[in-house]
Simulated assay, not measured.
Amino acid sequence: MPHLPATGWLKELSEEALFQIETKGSFRFYQPQETVFLQEKELDNYYIVVSGLANAYHQNDEGKRWIVSLFSKGDLFPHVGLINDEHVYPANSETLSTCTLFVIRRDEMNTIFASYPEIRLHLTLFLTEKSRELMDRFSDSILGTAADRMISFLKKLAIHSGIRKTDGRYLINLGLTEQYIAEYIGVTPETVSRVLNKLYAEGRAEKIGRKKLLIRLKE
């Protein structure tokens, strides 16, 4: 049976707090590209990523989509309705790989926050960190080059969901097409391909099988 990972939003929570959260929800398994929730539908559940990668995205009437957020191990989503009265999902969400998500009903989440100040404090810190990440991403999109945005994305993916090898490199299971990455960081798929090829040529990254790579992060 899977358990909640003591990482991300759950990092440094006590065993008792983790246990109390686990008793209020259930684990659910998803295949790649499976819908988690739809925009404007009633916000009835929250999700914690146990393994895999999921996203949140908007889509216009012509079918064009843009990625708002990516969620990896330990992430809680969506972020709305936790400290306000929002009652609908603000975006669509789907899995990008095989995923295990912990699903907890909104009313149960509110019960937990009311009963355990320790968990509510972690929520406040979590939302503060997410706000900082959004500001950094906005800054990157305005001030950084396309290559800078791509490198920043790979670093975040490595730190949050990569596996660090003995030689210091990170193994990343992208699970994403170049189109998805391009939509998330606001560049063209050709730019994503060009930056990746440059990293391969410089020896800073190595392609390992399909949609996997080893990357060395600069200190």
Rank of each mutant, 00 (worst) to 15 (best):
I172V: 11
I119T: 09
K73V: 12
A146S: 09
K198Y: 04
C99P: 06
P117V: 08
R65H: 10
I104T: 00
K155L: 02
L171D: 04
L76R: 01
N55S: 09
I119P: 10
E108C: 04
R169P: 00
T145W: 06
E62R: 15
E42T: 07
P5N: 06
S161D: 14
T166V: 08
R65G: 07
T111N: 00
W9Y: 05
E40L: 03
E219H: 02
Y180C: 11
V88E: 07
R149P: 12
A54T: 03
S161F: 10
K198P: 04
F27D: 08
A6C: 06
G186K: 09
Y184M: 06
F153Y: 10
T166K: 06
D107P: 01
A6V: 03
T95L: 08
D107E: 02
E178G: 15
D140L: 14
I185G: 10
S193E: 14
L96G: 10
D75Y: 00
D136C: 15
T191M: 13
N92C: 11
L82F: 08
H160S: 11
R216F: 03
P117E: 11
G203L: 07
N84V: 04
H160Q: 12
F27G: 05
E178T: 14
L127G: 11
T145N: 05
A147Y: 11
Q31E: 10
F138V: 13
T166C: 03
L199W: 00
T35M: 07
L121E: 02
L217I: 03
G168H: 04
K165V: 02
D85K: 01
K73S: 08
A205W: 00
S69T: 10
E202I: 00
T100M: 13
R28H: 12
M1S: 15
A114Q: 04
T177D: 14
A147C: 13
M135G: 11
K64R: 04
F113M: 13
